[in-house]
């Protein structure tokens, strides 16, 4: 089943999608499997698996530091895909890899797509590869059935939003702030109009991400989008093994809680 279909199935139940971002191998590669299995168990819709990079220009301090810890544990794209492959039979929710472009180029685009598929990866997010450059990966990803998720920003003009929405696969990653990843206190008031434009331009799920860190954020983005991606808050909670916080965020996207 495709990434898009699986997310649509979640939405069909009346729930909103909840996608946590984790830094693969923050606390060591051996923590990857129990973390993903537990997230699956508490009802997340998909997991965004972050790959550490030496120069993560789109990330704020929380994820950057998690990346540094992962690098110190010797985590690489290759190790993560091998580890995912080792337990892919136990995973029923979609996995979406988030990596900067250079580790993919060093891996070899074709080899990466093949190994990602083996690891059960259904989607890919590359924060430093805008739509114009994405043809580079398209053929290989298509061959292995991996969706290439496009990011749409608040600065994208309406015409561009239409183009990005048409090109995106799996879902649309709607960036909610001008800036980098990390927790925010508040968001711009014009977001509702932006999301209305996005929803109108697309026929795949629209998930909001960047800065979302509280139950209130999750609920308010649930009103205007199809779900949320939560990064820095999850990364911090996982370090502290504060599962109560994570479960509360997940519950905020469930039909029973929304109404």
């Amino acid at each position: 089943m495709t990434l898009q279909k699986q997310l649509e199935d979640v939405l069909a139940t009346g729930d909103k999608a909840f996608v946590p971002y984790i830094m693969a191998g923050d606390r060591g590669i051996e923590t990857l499997k129990p973390t993903i299995l537990k997230l699956q168990q508490i009802g997340v819709s998909a997991v965004e698996v972050g790959i550490p990079f030496t120069d993560p220009v789109a990330d704020g301090p929380t994820i950057e530091q998690a990346g540094e810890r992962a690098l110190a544990h010797g985590i690489t794209l290759r190790k993560v895909l091998a580890e995912l492959t080792s337990f892919s039979q136990e995973i029923h929710i979609p996995l979406v890899v988030m990596t900067y472009l250079n580790p993919i180029l060093a891996y070899g685009i074709e080899d990466f797509a093949k190994d990602a598929k083996l690891g059960g990866v259904q989607g890919l997010i590359v924060p430093d590869m805008p739509f114009e450059e994405s043809a580079l990966l398209h053929t290989a990803l298509k061959e292995h059935g991996i969706a290439l998720v496009q990011l749409v920003s608040l600065t994208s003009p309406v015409e561009r939003i239409k183009k990005l929405a048409a090109a995106s696969e799996g879902f649309i990653y709607a960036v909610t702030v001008n800036g980098i990843t990390g927790e925010r206190v508040s968001f711009a008031t014009e977001l509702a109009g932006h999301f209305a434009n996005l929803k109108a331009a697309s026929n795949i799920p629209v998930l909001a991400g960047f800065g979302i860190s509280t139950i209130e954020h999750v609920k308010s983005f649930g009103d205007i989008a199809d779900g949320v991606i939560v990064g820095s808050k999850i990364v911090t909670a996982l370090v502290e093994q504060d599962w109560a916080t994570i479960e509360a965020l997940v519950q905020a996207t469930k039909k029973a809680t929304i109404n």
């Binding site: 924060p127 590869m129 805008p130 114009e132 450059e133 043809a135 920003s153 600065t155 994208s156």
Partner: peptide, 24 residues
């Protein structure tokens, strides 16, 4: 590599987050 503006042979390009694309 794809052919977009701002290439010098196969080098260059615009590998940046989407938020910067409009500014570029």
């Amino acid at each position: 590599m794809t052919t977009v503006k701002g290439r010098f042979g196969r080098f260059g390009g615009q590998f940046v987050p989407e938020t910067l694309m409009t500014s570029l």
